[in-house]
Design a protein around this nucleic acid. Structure first.
Lengths: 340, 340
DNA sequence: CTGAAAGCGCTTACAG
DNA sequence: CTGAAAGCGCTTACAG
């Protein structure tokens, strides 16, 4: 694997390395036409490709950003990452995506790895348990943007969904169709992941606004593996008319449960998912869902980060960026007027 | 963003840069205990992180590989990528994933970008239209492994599914349940993507082996957007009893079609998908599918590449690596004995 | 208009 | 057991 370097090109074109470098960086200002021509030919003949590693070392910029998603298996993460990539691509930045797998230790490892690789900035779906590290990056003025979740006391704004509104949309739609006994199921809140709290909060507020008392036995926050059991219990003691799935994993578990226990949707149980899933429209029944504007959110996060990188300002004057959810009405909610 | 360099550590610990470097690379052979101790402290006090870019430049290895998937939206790509990442991770290699979006021009761009970034090797889901580039890499002895598809005349083995077998499993299962009029739908074969041909070939062979004549009007190869129309036509003139979906996109379109036209599955139409999809088990009906051993395939590709990188041998003595598919029997095929 | 020289932050024989 | 020096492949003032 012999590699052609700038020196080889320079020799062949009978110029100095400096001139080749100028050429590559399109600083043609004072360059003679024939010189350009010679360099161009030499590059082609030798099949020369510049070594970005060397350039980065000197320029102290890799034109690369890192994205650390909390869990790549969430649909939301994939879509947001795509949007970030698009934005970066059009500014000639590359993107490296890493998956923290909901594990703060992995998150830390990736942050360190990416920084060692000298990426110019980081977009993080924070697991929430690396506050020291975040603070250190801030102190060093390193460009960071959070997404999906806030990190209290760290003055970096986060690009997020209006989570309370998401639950409200779901509750209201269910109530308009006559449901009152509405269960809310989210992933475990032991992990301290804010959107889950906010979604539960929104659910509670929406119920209260409709004069429905809150029943704690209809609120379940639990790991996906335990959902089947929890639902079983709930259905035996106190079956809900409708259920809101706090995210795509939860939705999947509820659908599995319904299938195994022959619970008919929406006849026996209405369902609304928060997060739209790829199969929602062609599932039977098609799944009513509250969608996040994933593309806009990713785009915003990318733009924020690129701004910070270019302006070298790491603190935000603006508070969090909140985006509005949209209700996608489909067929998993039993239709009906407002019942008694 | 002041950065701490090795020189700073050396000064603080009162040793030379060389010694710090030895320390970092764990070449402790002759290092005094107190020296080690001093360096360790200096590193901690300064919060020093080595600059991998500088190291890579000198070592001519970035300990990073690139993966270029044909289309990240295929479930297969995501799962294979995860497996590759796992393998690389345990050998201390990093992975950069890029999405060619089924576009040879993008594929080319990413290959060049990744090579400029000095990745140590590449795993490619080849679009098939960059043969010159592949050949060039081979000539330069650059480590490459193909996956999912072969590239004729390029002596690099590819990690692939036994595609003919996949179709055979599907056809046989359908026939055992009494179906004879079996349609085969794949994505367009204009793109020259070999697995599609092989799957069609396997389908034909399996029919012939069962003494069923091949009817060209039951074989459709077309872009996903046009599937609805093609199915419409097929169902009006000549409705099949069963259909095999050539990949996950096609399956999705068939399911949408069935939903829109109130075609009941499996009562009116049996379906088998090639490629297992995440929602297969909890879809209604659960989707019978032919699964690829994605994890094993990704692992193999990763290991092959790491071997090449370490041994610096780029040509393969072995021909292609073929993996066997598995039939996942679920509920989308109408049950029945072998009918007349 | 172009070149010589220094330097980015590391690693690695080699000398002592 | 440790240090001085060269070098990886670029870029960038600066000189001419």
């Amino acid at each position: 694997m012999k590699s052609v370097t700038m020196a080889d090109v320079a020799k062949r074109a009978n110029v100095s390395k400096s001139t080749v470098s100028q050429y590559l960086n399109k600083r043609y200002d004072y360059m003679g036409e024939k010189t350009k021509e010679r360099i161009k030919e030499a590059i082609e003949e030798l099949g020369y490709q510049p070594n970005i590693v060397a350039r980065s070392l000197k320029q102290k910029s890799t034109k690369t950003i890192g994205v650390i998603v909390a869990n790549i298996l969430h649909n939301f993460s994939t879509e947001v990452s795509r949007a970030i990539e698009d934005v970066c691509h059009s500014s000639d930045f590359h993107t490296i995506i890493c998956n923290a797998d909901d594990d703060p230790a992995k998150e830390k490892k990736y942050i360190e790895m990416l920084r060692a690789k000298q990426v110019d900035g980081l977009i993080i779906f924070p697991t929430g348990n690396n506050r020291e590290l975040y603070r250190k990056m801030l102190k060093e003025d390193y460009p960071v943007v959070f997404i999906d979740r806030p990190v209290p006391d760290i003055p970096v704004s986060s690009v997020m969904l209006n989570n309370e509104k998401a639950s409200q949309l779901a509750v209201n739609h269910l109530m308009e169709n006559g449901h009152k006994r509405i269960a809310m199921i989210t992933a475990s809140i032991k992990d301290n992941v804010t959107p889950r709290f906010e979604r539960i909060e929104g659910y509670k507020k929406a119920l209260l606004a409709n004069d429905i008392p809150i029943r704690e036995d209809l609120i379940v926050s639990i790991q996906p593996e335990q959902i089947e059991e929890a639902l079983n219990e709930m259905f035996q003691s106190n079956p809900p008319e409708a259920v809101i799935a706090g995210n795509d994993f939860i939705l999947k578990e509820i659908l599995k449960f319904a299938k195994h226990h022959k619970v008919r949707i929406p006849k026996d149980l209405s369902i609304i998912g928060i997060d739209d899933v790829p199969y929602a429209s062609f599932y039977t029944p098609a799944i009513t869902a509250v969608a996040q504007p994933t593309f806009k959110m990713g785009k915003t996060a990318g733009e924020l980060l690129l701004n910070k990188i270019q302006k070298k300002q790491s603190t935000d004057d603006r508070p969090d960026f909140r985006f509005e959810p949209t209700l996608m009405v489909r067929d998993s909610v039993k239709q009906g007027g407002r019942r008694k």
